[in-house]
Design a protein around this nucleic acid. Structure first.
Lengths: 309, 309
DNA sequence: CACAATGATCAGCTAGCCTGATGTTCGTGG
DNA sequence: CCACGAACATCAGGCTAGCTGATCATTGTG
């Protein structure tokens, strides 16, 4: 892919060239580079052997050396390269500090609306140059597959998963009943009382399956009259009186006064929201920060949720 | 001027990184680079020591290695640098062949109009990407000074000059008499016959001084009624009948039928046009080509001049 | 469970590179 | 005209970085 000749050219040579050219003297260049004059002399000689011609005219005696035309042209390229190496170093340093970098996150809709805004906001506030991508995925398996093939750096998942991924538990997200205000007396609603009640649900992905199996385990066979994965649509249908819905608390807009929330009795196993990433791949600083910030954000979020349910 | 850390980073490391990343395994990368697997392993280890983190995740066993986020970012920079080194090599090669490069030439007005167009035309025809600059200088001393300080790469000069410059003789440029058609009988004009004749000359630079000293050495004290360094102006004044002019043949537009040329008798020492350049500085390929082409162009030009004078 | 593929590691050697001393060239001041 | 100083080249010597070849550890595969 790359050229054959000039293979021995190294950055060191260009640095020596630059130093001598701008110092005017081998000895001063050596001093600046922290070498002896002899070393610089040999480095330039090596460079000249590589390019096949002299890059400096040495007038001899105490007169300063000057670049040959070829040396001048080489130096123009060399300065450019040195500046780019410099930029590389600075960029790498910022990357290691998590100030720059690209990060692709996978998340459910509920996480996207309830958790991510706060996380993204804090990350951008601290490091405005991060390149964050959020991919909305509603299926745990899709999420894990994309985590595995590298499309995602980190992803929010529902349950504890096996696979070669690490997970960090974030919060417990209990199922709650959504109803029209006044439809049920305040306080917990007994699942048994929901027999025959028309229900609104999501399509058959991870948390909906968890939902249904929870209900069945306490003897309720739910009747769904509408399914949507858009939480706003589900809430709207509840408001419209089409039925009630059992949703993870995170899927609910807590500010919406036109619906009412009720804990369930008995409590069915709610989903646990966790963050997952591959353990066999090194995490970038940006990803580590994302995890840390997310853990913190979810910590305070969990407190607020506990107050509701 | 440049950064402190990352000083040990060399192009070799980036080449190894690129090779491994695109080959997927250390062994194949080694094969491509002409090293052993062990060498590549150590090069990557060295790179990782320099940047302070792993750049590859090694899953172990026969699975391909993958870049870490930091490795990916480093590689993006690295590929850019490698391409630039590649471009550097190609550019240097073209420079050595004289296909590209910058060349600044100093020349008198007469040379500019009589010699340079042909030279420049041929150079551009062969190497369209050369960057030629022509600086019109009417004074030999100025020319030599600028040659000395590097402002000019090569310069046209009149006489053989000492200084630390080499000169290449190009052609002899005899002085001729310009007159209105019919003002003198065809053929040579005797200088003695010009006594009292109003004359038009140039200002006191190199070739005008040579001119006047030549005339005085054969007993003529010229009377100048007008001086201009613009050869077209001098010719116009001759046409207007203001006087006659003695000019180097190169300063005359041979196609202008409204003036007549006469050799002088006796012949006074004409100027010799030569090309000069510093001997203590290496010449670029472009300069060498310029000299070669100029010598050739002047060779055929000399023949045509001989036919006139 | 043996085998193959892959990277890490180690020992040993070579070559490149740096240092310190010395040689050579040239301008400068007396 | 000469001695001195400044500046680069060169040489010898030592050190180390880097390469080779062999071996080890790990892991997927038949």
């Amino acid at each position: 892919m790359f050229v054959a000749w000039l293979r021995e050219l190294e950055i060191k040579h260009l640095a020596a060239l630059e130093a001598v050219a701008s110092a005017g003297t081998f000895a001063r260049a050596a001093e600046r580079l922290g070498y002896t004059q002899s070393a610089v002399s040999q480095q330039i000689a090596s460079l000249e052997r590589i390019v096949g011609e002299r890059v400096f005219d040495r007038p001899g005696g105490p007169r300063p050396v000057t670049l040959t035309p070829l040396g001048e042209r080489l130096l123009a390229h060399g300065r450019d390269l040195l500046h780019r190496v410099d930029a590389l170093a600075r960029d790498l340093e910022r990357f290691r500090l998590g100030e720059v970098g690209r990060l692709t996150v996978g998340a459910y809709q509920s996480v996207c609306s309830a958790v991510l805004p706060a996380v993204v906001g804090r990350l951008y506030r601290d490091h405005p140059e991060l390149e964050l991508r959020v991919a909305e995925r509603d299926d745990d398996d899709v999420m894990l597959a994309e985590l595995a093939d590298g499309s995602l750096d980190v992803g929010f998942v529902v349950g504890p998963v096996g696979a070669p991924v690490a997970t960090r538990h974030l919060l417990d997200d209990p199922f709650v009943l959504l109803s029209r205000p006044g439809q049920f007396p305040p306080g917990p609603v007994r699942i048994a009382d929901l027999h025959g009640q028309p229900m609104i649900g999501q399509h058959g992905y991870s948390c909906q399956l968890l939902n249904e199996s929870g209900l069945r385990s306490v003897g309720l066979e739910p009747t769904y009259v509408f399914r949507s994965n858009d939480n706003g649509t589900v809430a709207a249908m509840v408001r419209a009186g089409m039925g009630v819905a059992i949703l993870p608390l995170l899927c609910v807009d807590l500010e919406d006064r036109r619906i009412e929330l009720h804990p369930l009795e008995p409590v069915i196993p709610g989903r646990t929201v966790a963050l997952a990433w591959r353990t066999d791949r090194t995490l970038g600083a940006a990803a580590q920060q994302f995890i840390a910030v997310t853990v913190e954000v979810c910590g305070s979020l969990a407190e607020r949720l506990a107050a509701v349910a």
